[in-house]
Each structure stands twice: as C-alpha cells, then as structure tokens.
Design a protein around this nucleic acid. Sequence first.
DNA 1: ATATAATGATACCATATTAGTATCATTTGT
DNA 2: ACAAATGATACTAATATGGTATCATTATAT
Lengths: 131, 131
Amino acid sequence: MKLITRDTDYAIRALCFIARRQKGLTSVSELVSVLGIPRPFLRKLLQTLNKKRLVKSYKGKGGGFRMARLPRKIIIADLMRIFQGPLKISEHVFKNSPCPERKVCKFKQKLDVIERYVVGELKRINLESIL
Amino acid sequence: MKLITRDTDYAIRALCFIARRQKGLTSVSELVSVLGIPRPFLRKLLQTLNKKRLVKSYKGKGGGFRMARLPRKIIIADLMRIFQGPLKISEHVFKNSPCPERKVCKFKQKLDVIERYVVGELKRINLESIL
DNA sequence: ATATAATGATACCATATTAGTATCATTTGT
DNA sequence: ACAAATGATACTAATATGGTATCATTATAT
C-alpha cells in the first residue's frame, strides 16, 4: 500500500534542503553528501524538477539549483503526480479487470470516498508546511 | 498509488459471489466461469482464504467453498492485510531510506494522519456493506 | 474398488514497476 | 584551455505483482 515512491520522497528531501538555503545555489554534490542519495538518481530527479519548473538550474562551474518558486507554492500532490502519475487510488483495479457492475460497484464507491479525502489532503501539504 | 492489488480485488469478488449463495457450495469452476478470473490464480486465493478461515473448503467430488462467517464479519482491511501485508502507507519510504530527522519529520507526521484515516475507513468496510 | 471431480501444497515463471547506472554533450567561470 | 557543473538519454538491476504448472489428497457415485 504504497502512497509515496522513493523518487518522490527523495525529491521532497532535496527540495527541503534547497529551500532552506535562502540564497545561492545548491549543487548535486552537496545534496549527495548531505542526503546520501545516489548521485545519478538525484541528478535525474533534479533534471525533472527543473523541466517542471519547480527549481531553476544553472549550468557550468559553480552552477547548481535554486527554488523556482516559494516553498508554499510547491504542493506535495504535484510532486507525486510528476513522479508517480495520476493521483488515483482505485483506478488500476477497475481498469485492468473491470468489475461487471462497475458503475454501481459499492466497493468502488467507498474507495472513491477515501480517494477524494486522500487527494484532498495531499493537495493541502506544501513544502513550507513541512520545512 | 495503489491501494488495492489484484488478488485482494479478486478475493472480494469471489467472496461476494460465494456470500450471495445462501446455502450450498461454490466451486472454483463456477467462479471462473462467472468472474473470468484465471483459474490457478483463483485457486490460490481461495486456498489462502481457507487457511485464514474466511471460507471453509470441502474436498472431493461435489466439493467447493462456503463462507466461514457472516459477510458482516469479513472486513476489507483484513483482506488487504492477508494479500498485501501490513496496512502502512508511509512505512516503506522511511524504512528503506530513513529520513535523518525521522522522529520529527513533519512530512511523515502528515502522512500518518492520512494513514490513520484510510486504515480507519478500510476497517469499516465489510463484505455485507458492498453486497 | 475405482474413476472422477474437487481442493491442498508448493514451486515455478512472466511481466511490470521501481530503483539505480552509465555515458556523452553542453555550458560557464577562472 | 580546463574543470566543474547540469542536460539528455539509454541502459541495467531489483523487486513486487500477476499468473502457471504439477502432483498429492480427499470425497462421492457407481
């Protein structure tokens, strides 16, 4: 029952570190030494975050990353979507092996209620709130 | 973000079918033809359910399965535990790559709140309520 | 007794997802 | 020019999930 995958988790920690540094850049090397996350994996994550405009990257000597927006504007649900795809709890089951009574399936209805709550909560968590 | 795996889902459908049959046994063959679930997979599921005393099995010609308790006493959370292990949403992340500030990690705290709700709700869903 | 139709036990295989690596290109400061 | 950084991208490894195969055991009907 995995809500958060490793890359999302790593991304959150990296962002926390970068965000705490009020000004200046943070390099991958620094993050690796502090967070102990495998370097190539971290690089990939940060490149993704850069493409998605959550951080801004600077190439070349002395380069690195800085936040591209306020921590308050970085929502956990968005990070999860980036690294894990759509925020759906129940879809896959009903996608691959559709319940014959899909439309009225009471179990699905109950899962949907849970899903709405979970997604709602995840949208309420921003980086600032966990710094 | 997968809450329910295929075997849990299959198990629920099989149990629903068996439960609707007030008396008498249901064989795997019958379930296969009705539910369209791969036979060997279904058998494995039912053997597990038997071991866990959710159904009672009868061997030999004319054999099959029947409920071992009232549908109301079959809790979805229990089924999930049987097929998917402990109901933990956030554990794995913090298990494999422990956050240095694990104890006070605000993110984990927020996930824990979500987890408590989800698990609480899952414990409230029983088979009768989705029949 | 025996054949048949059922489940029990268990080991195995396939596929998908997740996690991690490797490599080369590009940019920038000194 | 060189070194130190990121960009792009393809590849590999590990794990979890989904599914098969096989043989043993049991019960019923004839």
